[in-house]
Design a protein around this nucleic acid. Structure first.
Length: 107
DNA sequence: GGGTTGACAACAG
DNA sequence: GCTGTTGCCAACC
């Protein structure tokens, strides 16, 4: 139970640690988990995070800074709304100044 | 136990 | 520069 957390739990742990007004990418999280190539798993874990209120999945976007998973939210505009609420500008499902708002999970 | 899926990422054409 | 395909790895059927 100490370090035996599943891949999902690890992802949740990192996503939950994303500071306010910051975003990160799936690949960055996957890399932080030690599997830089399991970015898809990160997204899959997010899919299960729907029941997790402590998982700000809206702060997680793809490496391109695009809100790929916005369709998985209850409202198509919910994800963008949350990001804008944190001071992050979103245009056409894409985060503006993604690099500036990017947060390294290893940090 | 095997095959398919997937909120991505990297490479090739 | 953009579109298409492959790779990864764990979960789901």
């Amino acid at each position: 139970m100490s370090e035996s957390q599943s891949f999902f739990d690890k992802v949740y742990s990192i996503v939950r640690c994303i500071p306010f007004g910051r975003v990160t990418s799936y690949g960055a999280i996957a890399k932080a988990l030690g599997s830089s190539r399991s970015a898809r798993m990160v997204g899959y874990a997010m899919n299960a995070s729907h029941g997790m209120q402590d998982i700000p999945a809206h702060r997680v976007v793809n490496r391109n800074g695009m809100l790929t998973g916005k369709f998985h939210f209850e409202g198509s505009q919910l994800m963008q709304q949350l990001l804008e609420n944190e001071g992050i500008k979103v245009k056409n499902n894409q985060v503006i100044d993604f690099e500036k708002h990017f947060w390294d999970p290893s940090s």
